[in-house]
């Protein structure tokens, strides 16, 4: 479904992603792990069009998408959440989720002025669907809330609901459990597993190893921008390079 080949991104002197290649199979849950600064978020930004690759290729469902703008990738069914929250705090919670349905609605200015998009109950249906998804991801208690009054954990879920609202074919989650407590992390794990069962392809960056090992079908390990290892959770757990990298990172106190 997704094939990344020799992908490289340099920021001035820093090569954040360096010659990374891997493949994501449709309908699986794929994890990308690695120490802080390994290039995981940069990799997501490259695949989702936020950054343009320095070199290499990204092929999604048969066509090259490297450097294609995010709004065009959204049309192809690519959706994501952000490590550093990207919620519009000037909107209500449910409005944030409803923006996820943007492509399916009539977003013309003139049409909007005369109330056209509302005809046939489209807005109403979108609103109901948004509330259902908020419930599904576990922030149903905030359906009537303003985004800026929501706690961090709920906002992380809100981003997932917004991403799902677009009916994505592939969903990128950048550290969905970061900053969450033990119970919340457990709930996110269940949520990701449930998403996987529905047939959405999920690519996940996460530091919580228990979560990663439990939900992933395959894992790619990055270190200093390079791919260090790839395999099933069982293989990664015992990979000597991975163990060394993680122990190294820990002893450096990063």
């Amino acid at each position: 479904m997704l094939r990344v080949e020799n992908l490289t991104k340099a920021f001035g002197g820093v090569t954040a992603v360096s010659g990374v290649s891997f493949e994501v199979t449709k309908g699986t849950i794929h994890a990308v792990i690695g120490p802080n600064g390994a290039g995981k978020t940069t990799l997501f930004n490259l695949i989702t069009g936020v950054y343009t690759p320095s070199s290499g290729s990204i092929v999604f469902e048969g066509s090259e998408i490297g450097g294609v703008a995010p709004e065009r990738l959204a049309k192809r069914g690519i959706s994501r959440t952000f490590q550093n929250l990207q919620v519009s705090m000037n909107l209500s919670a449910i409005d944030n989720v409803m923006t996820g349905a943007h492509l399916g609605l009539n977003s013309g200015l003139l049409a909007g002025m005369i109330g056209l998009p509302d005809l046939g109950g489209r807005e109403r249906a979108t609103r109901i669907r948004a509330a259902e998804l908020m419930e599904f991801v576990g922030c149903g208690a905030y359906v009537a809330a303003e985004a800026r009054s929501m706690p961090y954990g709920a906002l992380k879920r809100l981003e997932i609901a917004r991403a799902l609202m677009a009916n994505p074919r592939i969903l990128f989650l950048d550290e969905p459990a970061a900053g969450l407590n033990h119970t919340e992390t457990h709930e996110i794990e269940d949520l990701i597993a449930a998403l996987g069962k529905t047939g959405i392809t999920v690519v996940l960056v996460e530091h919580d190893m228990k979560l990663v090992m439990n939900v992933s079908d395959r894992i790619v390990v990055l270190d200093y921008g390079k791919k260090l290892a790839e395999g099933t959770p069982a293989e990664i757990r015992v990979d000597p390079d991975v163990v060394a990298a993680y122990l190294g990172a820990e002893s450096e106190g990063v």
């Binding site: 990207q86 919620v87 000037n90 923006t99 991403a163």
Partner: peptide
């Protein structure tokens, strides 16, 4: 809604196709 959203977070707006 798209206009308000892009004011709040441009990158989030673009990612949902705005």
């Amino acid at each position: 809604r798209a206009l308000r959203a892009l004011h709040g977070s441009e990158v989030a707006a673009r990612v949902v196709g705005i």
